[in-house]
């Protein structure tokens, strides 16, 4: 890995960390627990398209562990890990198939993040009635995925010109 790539990855980790903190400070209060804009996903998207799958995966995991240790607790970390893992898997598959643009990949990620979290919550709380949240969370994931996708598309096109990495 080249030095500038390492530095760039470090920068993105810090950025993801900060964005998670911003989201933690300003929770989207619309009456549905777990509904988030997914600002940090913006950074993961940028990393996925500029630094490659492996580095983006590292970034995603490091971010969740960092945020979990700093602002949350173990339970929150497990939920986030499941969400981030499934979301990342979906985004990689979406990117590899080359069917979708940045926006489509981001929507896949947003939706799968919520699905992953609900699945883990269902196992932890041992109740299947949480599935009633899923439609609402999927709609929110789709909307935020579109926003994040359009934004990261703009960022990616600019960064690729600047860094050539």
């Amino acid at each position: 890995m080249k030095t500038n790539k390492i530095a760039f990855l470090g920068l993105l980790v810090a950025l993801a960390f900060v964005l998670s903190y911003v989201e933690f400070l300003l929770p989207l209060n619309i009456g549905i627990p777990g509904a988030k804009v997914g600002l940090a996903n913006l950074v993961v998207m940028v990393a996925l398209y500029t630094l490659g799958t492996k580095n983006a995966f590292l970034l995603s995991i490091v971010r969740v562990v960092l945020v979990g240790l700093t602002f949350g607790n173990l339970a929150m970390m497990i939920y986030s890990l499941a969400g981030a893992g499934l979301s990342f898997l979906a985004m990689v598959i979406g990117k590899k198939t080359k069917l979708f643009s940045v926006t489509g990949v981001s929507v896949l990620g947003g939706v799968c993040h919520n699905i992953g979290q609900i699945i883990v919550a269902m196992f932890v709380l041992e109740t299947s009635s949480l599935i009633y949240y899923l439609p609402f969370l999927i709609v929110i994931g789709t909307v935020s995925g579109i926003v994040i996708g359009v934004l990261s598309g703009m960022i990616i096109s600019r960064i690729q010109k600047l860094f050539k990495i």
């Binding site: 069917l99 979708f100 643009s101 926006t103 489509g104 896949l108 009633y132 439609p135 789709t142």
Partner: peptide, 24 residues
Amino acid sequence: MKKNDIILIAVILVITLGGLASMA
């Protein structure tokens, strides 16, 4: 945005609405 993206979004929303309807 590509055409596939819009198809993806539409499919997700349709599935969700279907799920909501069946739940209700």
